[in-house]
Design a protein around this nucleic acid. Structure first.
Lengths: 114, 114
DNA sequence: TTAATATATAATTATTTGCTTATATAATCA
DNA sequence: TGATTATATAAGCAAATAATTATATATTAA
């Protein structure tokens, strides 16, 4: 049986969210690793509220989930989302961004929180 | 040899453009058929300048091309664009929108211009 | 040539977006 | 307990967006 094709309006909503370099990179990273807010702040060199707001948008459509672990809140991609296959296909065509985490780690800034 | 992965910033630019229901539907249609401006005006029930402006954005990144035929200007998708494979993969996951053209035709409004 | 048709561009406007700063909440640590 | 750290939310603002109306340009038809 074939997968139901995605509705075009729903696709437009998702693409609009992914059409931002910060969120697109976030999702690409989250497709490979779980990550906490402070890491994203570090990676993107943006203010913490700005990062929180981007994550909020991804959470609002259910594409990411959060899980508190003590002081930190970890975000992960929601692979059970109806539209995850669509997103995954798309992310699959982009180069891995894991090197950004590797860089953090090299500077000892990843361990500090995660 | 493997295809070079798309740059993430370039992907974000394209996704932002596709993150609009009008442009996304346009591109989906153009991936299957050549179309002229007046047909889009009819299909979307939007003003002609609005349609022209959406087409302009798609043209600005080189994803569509225009070709004048007399009075009319026909738009087609640019399959030679470096990022066309990315776009195609994405569009391939969406349901065909050709029925919108079929509807026009049924009302005798397609023949009128094309 | 004049009128009609198809399209593009310019100007305007309301809405949305993405950032900032300020503040609130929650958990940990001394 | 009080201080620190991590995060979220609220408010404000400048820039971008997507629509509209008005106008310009190009082609065809009378």
């Amino acid at each position: 049986m074939q997968k139901t094709a995605m509705e075009i309006d729903q696709a437009a909503i998702i693409l609009k969210l992914l059409g931002d370099r910060t969120r697109l990179t976030m999702l690409k990273i989250l497709d490979e690793e779980v990550c906490c807010v402070c890491e994203f702040v570090d990676i993107f060199g943006m203010s913490q509220p700005s990062i929180s707001q981007h994550l909020r948008k991804l959470k609002d459509i259910g594409m990411v989930r959060e899980e508190r672990k003590g002081q930190w809140i970890f975000y992960s991609i929601n692979k059970s989302h109806d539209d995850y296959p669509f997103v995954r296909e798309l992310l699959g065509q982009l180069p891995s961004q894991i090197y950004k985490l590797t860089e953090l780690e090299a500077q000892g800034r990843r361990i500090s929180c995660c």
